[in-house]
């Protein structure tokens, strides 16, 4: 059912993240060996490493692609307390058909390890969110999309919990929204997932919800692509895998305006919970339309989940 191919990644330490670009023909991997590798899908269906370079002076936790509208751009974040934005220089090929990536910007505001970095959905322009181990979420914006070297810090949010991951809500209908997960280990600390929303009037990010369903340390978090849905699906990887739905309290009969003040209330429901990994769930991702969820656990298995009565479809 699945044809599995091994790729000699040749990273010298653990790989912490794998990320496809918008169209799924390029892939980036990042590792503790402080390098990032970019892989391109060849005509023959083989993945070829077209770039490999040292990006940080510490473990690189995450790598993520920007929307291709902004160019071939990736962002990385690292233990070395920085996040960086890289752009591929078109037309300059070094030896062995290697493409050339240059650092456009280094975001050095964090005082601790930067644990996640994510580009905002395209309709919000070129924005970048980072979160760090000391519990700060930072929102950067490149006011000029042609100039990737200039990022201004728009906001920093103190979450008061050590952050491990974040995810943008892709919805166009809803005001900008971010979910932040914490790997804080104390079970007494309450909910480990917080939802922040951008308030257009005050120009600030405000916390709108703490999801109390999740009290275990969170390793990864992901909003499903929203498409036309009126509710938001949030997958949370911790000790087990949970899918949580956030339904705005206003319904389609009373559509909420983007600037409505009282729009920030949700009905939060646990849609699904899986313990099949029988171990920590490390990473999760959705398919493009938000109907299939993939998770990878400490047991070394990849599991795909689908449909309303989520079922295992692959191991």
């Amino acid at each position: 059912m699945f044809v599995t191919r091994h790729i000699p990644a040749e990273h010298k330490d653990l790989i912490h993240d794998v990320s496809y670009d918008f169209h799924g023909n390029r892939m980036a991997t990042c590792s503790s060996d402080q390098t990032v590798k970019v892989w391109d899908l060849g005509e023959d269906g083989q993945w070829n490493c077209t770039a490999s370079w040292r990006t940080h002076s510490g473990s690189v936790w995450r790598v993520t692609w920007a929307h291709p509208e902004f160019g071939q751009v990736i962002a990385t974040c690292s233990f070395d307390r920085t996040a960086a934005v890289w752009e591929e220089i078109i037309g300059e090929y070094g030896k062995g058909n290697q493409s050339n990536w240059v650092k456009r910007s280094s975001l050095v505001d964090s005082r601790t390890s930067v644990t996640d970095v994510k580009f905002a959905p395209k309709h919000l322009g070129l924005q970048l969110a980072t979160c760090s181990a000391d519990g700060t979420v930072r929102i950067y914006e490149a006011p000029d999309v042609m100039n990737l070297s200039q990022w201004s810090l728009q906001n920093d949010i103190q979450t008061k919990l050590s952050c491990s991951c974040l995810s943008w809500n892709m919805s166009r209908m809803h005001p900008p929204m971010i979910a932040v997960g914490s790997d804080d280990a104390s079970p007494s600390g309450g909910g480990k997932v917080q939802i922040y929303e951008y308030n257009d009037k005050t120009r600030k990010w405000v916390k709108v919800e703490t999801i109390n369903i999740v009290t275990d340390p969170v390793h990864d978090i992901a909003f499903a692509p929203n498409l036309g849905r009126s509710y938001h699906l949030l997958a949370v990887a911790s000790k087990d895998l949970k899918v949580i739905s956030l339904t705005p309290l206003s319904t389609r009969d009373a559509p909420l305006a983007a600037n409505q003040v009282n729009s920030n209330k949700f009905t939060i429901k646990r849609v699904a919970e899986f313990t099949d990994h029988e171990s920590e769930v490390w990473r999760i991702c959705w398919n493009v339309i938000g109907t299939v969820l993939a998770s990878s656990g400490d047991d070394g298995c990849v599991r795909l989940w689908k449909g309303k009565p989520f079922t295992i479809t692959s191991k």
């Binding site: 990644a9 790989i15 993240d17 990473r283 993939a294």
Partner: peptide
């Protein structure tokens, strides 16, 4: 002990790439 030993992503055609320690 606390680093994530795993990475996963899925592209349009359900091609899942998975890195695991």
């Amino acid at each position: 002990d606390h680093v994530t030993p795993s990475g996963i992503d899925m592209n349009l055609d359900y091609t899942v790439s998975h890195a695991h320690g």
